[in-house]
Design a protein around this nucleic acid. Structure first.
Lengths: 218, 218
DNA sequence: TCTTTTTTTTAGATAAGCCTAAAAATATTT
DNA sequence: AAATATTTTTAGGCTTATCTAAAAAAAAGA
């Protein structure tokens, strides 16, 4: 069985791996874990010893097949619990991350699968991120980003890329939620800001925000 | 914030304290924690340092007021999660203990209170044990034990005293559940075994089992 | 290419929670 | 009450996950 620390490393290594094809530097992993490079080295060597990462001294690290399976199991739990907290307990999507960070370490496959059934097999969590199935496979697609839409195109908001606290709070404030139908009214070439129509409300968002919103055509 | 180990000690010290008025021996605590007396001593001294137990060298230990409050909070979480697992996820009462042992350590008062609301403020967990309220107070009573009923008296099964795995499995097997109306048909003075009627089924249970079943008169 | 800077690893320390073995205190027998 | 047995505590180690400081390797710059 893995310790919570080991699980957290695997999860963050997975997240970093999503962003690049290359080997991950020890430094980048240490930064993600908010720890020192020496601590990361220790842990990477331990995980390598357990066959969960492929680690080459001074070269870099990536998840092994087995490590990826473990990581997906944790991501699955995290996203299911987030869904539970929002759908059943009435939390808002910007409040659930820290609690799910704890819940994701609960060990019981039966529990995870029953929770999945109880939630009626959701495909995405409240941030729009896809939920891996029992086999660790992500079935659903993530859609395209709002910043790629052209003027007068519209679609449904299905996800948020970097679900940081501040972004979620901001979206709450300007009344944008998963499931909203968004139409692009104007794009300002100077700074890539986008004016959209959402529920008959006109809002201008920065290009940065537009890059973080996943849209599906309707 | 308390570590999981500290929380577990507090919870078990609370449970032991329920059984006796006297100071608890270091040995009894060590046994309950399935650890060595020297380890228990270490922890008791640490907890004493934090003001959570009153510990006197070579004399014994009991929870302080503050320690009891912490223990009750953990018991509350444990029992709420057990209720959730049975009522919402379809677990049976003999499957939930180990999972609740993990869930009871999740840190979030909001979560606990929302779970309580979601479950519609249950007064007892699936084993019939009372659930402390937000202030750590137990409101409901536990009832009397089946072994104290006389012939022809009847009542409703509201709880199980020592909810061990084997007892719960046994009760499942003989078709006895919380909420059943049980009538005493006969008591054998030789070994205190009790013959009862439950759902038009006659069953004879040992005196030992009868001492572990809480009954409320109807 | 040779220095200098940056990254990564190693070495040694620390805190938590456990262990064994030995010492100290308390309880029980005789 | 003295001897013996039991309980409890102390002392010293071990493991995990972290840290700092120093050494080694790799990358960047002159």
């Amino acid at each position: 069985m893995l310790s919570q620390a080991e699980e957290n490393y695997l999860k963050e290594i997975y997240a970093l791996g999503e962003e690049t094809e290359e080997l991950l530097s020890t430094n980048s992993i240490a930064k993600k874990m908010r720890t020192k490079a020496s601590s990361a080295t220790d842990m990477l060597q331990k995980l390598a010893g357990k066959g969960l990462v492929d680690y080459t001294k001074y070269k870099g690290t990536r998840l092994s097949k087995e490590g990826e399976a473990k990581a997906m199991a944790i991501v699955r739990k995290h996203r299911l619990w987030e869904t539970f907290l929002v759908a059943k307990l009435g939390f808002s999507w910007d409040e659930v991350h820290d609690i799910a960070e704890q819940l994701e370490h609960i060990q019981s496959k039966t529990l995870t699968n029953r929770l999945d059934a109880f939630l009626e097999y959701p495909s995405h969590d409240p941030h729009g991120h896809p939920i891996p199935n029992t086999n660790g496979k992500i079935v659903a697609s993530e859609g395209i980003i709002l910043a790629d839409l052209k003027i007068n195109e519209k679609g449904v908001l299905v996800g948020v890329k970097n679900a940081t606290d501040s972004l979620l709070k901001y979206l709450n404030k300007i009344n944008i939620t998963i499931g909203d139908t968004i139409k692009v009214l104007d794009i300002e070439p100077f700074d890539d800001s986008v004016t959209i129509d959402n529920n008959a409300q006109q809002i201008t968002i920065s290009g940065n925000v537009a890059k973080n919103l996943y849209i599906k055509y309707r």
